[in-house]
Design a protein around this nucleic acid. Sequence first.
DNA 1: AGCACGCCGACT
DNA 2: GTCGGCGTGCTC
Length: 820
Amino acid sequence: MEKLFAEVYVELKHRRLDRIFHYGIPPGLTDRIKVGARVVVPFGNKLHQGYVVNLVKRADVEKIKNIKELLDERPLFTPQDIELARWMADYYLCPFVAALECILPAGLKYENSTVIALLGSDEEAMSLLNSLKFMDTEAAEVLQFVLDKSSITRANLEKKFSGKNVARAIETLVDYGVISMKQQFRMTGFRREMSAILVRDEEISSDTQALANRAPKQGQLLSTLMDKKRLPVSLLLKQTGAPKSSLNALVAKGLVRLEEDTVAGKVIRQSDRPEVIHELTDKQEQVFRRVSSAIRDGKYAPFLLHGVTGSGKTEVYLRAVQRALEEGKSAVVLVPEIALASQMVSRFSQRFGEGIAVIHSGLSRAERLQEWMRVHRGQAKVVLGARSAVFAPVKDIGIIIIDEEHESSYKQDQVPKYHAREVAKARARQHEAALVLGSATPALESYLETQKRNYGLLTIDQRVTTRPLPVVAVVDMRQERRQGNSGIFSTALFQSLENCLGNGEQAILFLNRRGFASFLICDKCGFSIRCPHCDIALTHHTKGNKLMCHYCGYQQQVVTQCPRCGSPGIGGVGCGTQQVEEEMYRRFPDLSVIRMDVDNTRKQGAHQRLLDKFGSGEGSVLIGTQMVAKGLDFPNVTLVGVISADTGINLPDFRAWERTFQLLTQVAGRAGRGQRPGRVVVQTYQPDNPAVGRARTHDYLGFYRSELARRRQFGYPPFCRLIRVLITGQDEVKVKTGAEALSKVIKKNFLLHSAAGEILGPAPAPLAKIKGKHRWHLVAKSPDAEELKGVVSASLRQYSLEFDQQGTNLAVDVDPSGMI
DNA sequence: AGCACGCCGACT
DNA sequence: GTCGGCGTGCTC
């Protein structure tokens, strides 16, 4: 018997709709509807997009509607994609469709829009317009607008008449029968840019004069093109002011050719530098052999590769990927943020040339789609990219590598808040592939997995060159203050700077993130100036002498008196990159300093430009936040200074110490990469904190043990699993009561299941208000992962059925990486 | 989520 | 008597 019904998920991402709906397959579409294809279905009284997840012979539902339209003749999702999305939805407690849409590149999404068009003749519309003018001005205005445009999307109309009741006006006009509404599904991802090209520029010149006389616009187009040879159509028309028809005429005459723009420009795959294949050290060789045999075995095999900075992990990755290719399989390599990993891109492209695809956030939608298609078509069998590349449409994966696996950028900060490491695990299992997690400072969770024998442990404890790790000096700032030094630099750091710069070497100064850097605080009453919308300390910007909120962008003038107690002693505490820069110029007047922070790296490519500048020796000192910590390799840098380790240690987060340890280890790795030995100076008020102490001695295991003991004592991950739920909304009372209600439901369910779980909160989130939205959160916690998930998932369902949370939004975070 | 249905207050 | 508020319930 034929399979006449499709099981469909509708695109709407709501807990109540997160299930299968059955649709009939109309005669015209039998045999064409396949699992994994997208369709248009009538749902309620509108059309919506749907995803076909199964085909069945019968459906036990009373009323069944038919599928309206098929969007993909060839299915977009493989059964494995659907399986992966199921896993994600289940693990991250998100709607299935939300998970599925993660797998889909943005460029392939269809947008659901309503198109409004004139139904009858213009004359009919005009006569109605005249009578409406006196009865219903709003409807008249809308009609006038539609008349001018002849057709427009509803969304555009709403935008044009924002604030007015467009819906009613439209309804009126539809009732009069002057306009029609039609839903349309359009691909929005890639506008195909066309370029105009001159066909034969030699022979044209003689014709041009004659043509220019007869058709001046066409002449203008030609002469413009003669200068430029090739120009995007949109630009060309704008420059000449000629209509599209003139261009079309030239195309018809065979003088101009239109060609689709290639958008691959930004993805540089081949480097002109000759490839250096490094010999493997014994340690590297041992590691490679184990990974290699895992690839050959074709079984799921996860490894943690713990290699000190400079241990040559990249070369092992390259060989392992090569190995997978030799087996006829493909490979996925994830890096934290591609902008910071350009060295990785160039090494991979040197080795694999056109066979790699690069996918990251710096690409436009179209560029990303192009890379995606290359993978989809099997043109690239190696994918290198950031978090989302874990979903790349590769077939038959032999190995997945996650470099710097502890990095927090692997966790998506929007729903579904997945962690690429966990998704990679699920994919590696599906493909029976090897999985290599590489890091000098593995996440506590990952290292614990090796101890539990869930991951194989691969260790490289020596650098490729025998050069020792840099010496790390910890400066006790309490003592410094006692000795009367109230400046930014301790004596030790200042002397080290003098030394380093005196030798013509370079230094990096590292600060913690800027939101916590420079704020105004009253030295008498302790009042600090905070954002009225976001309730976080405003950051002082010397430029324009402004205070700015780094969440919503709110700005105000600097105050000179404390608004609470009136004391004139309100001033800056802590320091930002700008202050360090100023201090540097004060102490070393003829020095050139490069400052790098979120402000001056926002623009595309600005980041790399500053790094290149520093690399070429144009500046002696690089001052920056987190971004200078990662992956940089400048041989002439012999000194790294950490201005204050304390900001990191004291963040309100259970992972603060782990992060600080990782960060310090990483910045320390930036020193002494060339011939001369490196030195690291860390300033802190808490020299006894293990995050500082263990980083000083490069002792990962020591830190791991002490931190694990602390986590066990306080019941934090990895000994407990956490699910955090964030509730946001305009109305604080609604947000608060919602959080309390959900908390109550979870508590009750914990008791019913006699679970060991508990609830923290509900409480206002550490950032209690962002962009006018109040934020409350609660954390469910249990040592039993399955039970925790079961209880929270059931509670969420119950809550969403029993409480109408109008005006509030709910975001679930399974395994939150932080609590802020 | 989005929309219709439906039951109560202030207006032509 | 009518318009329109938003509580309730459904969507194959």
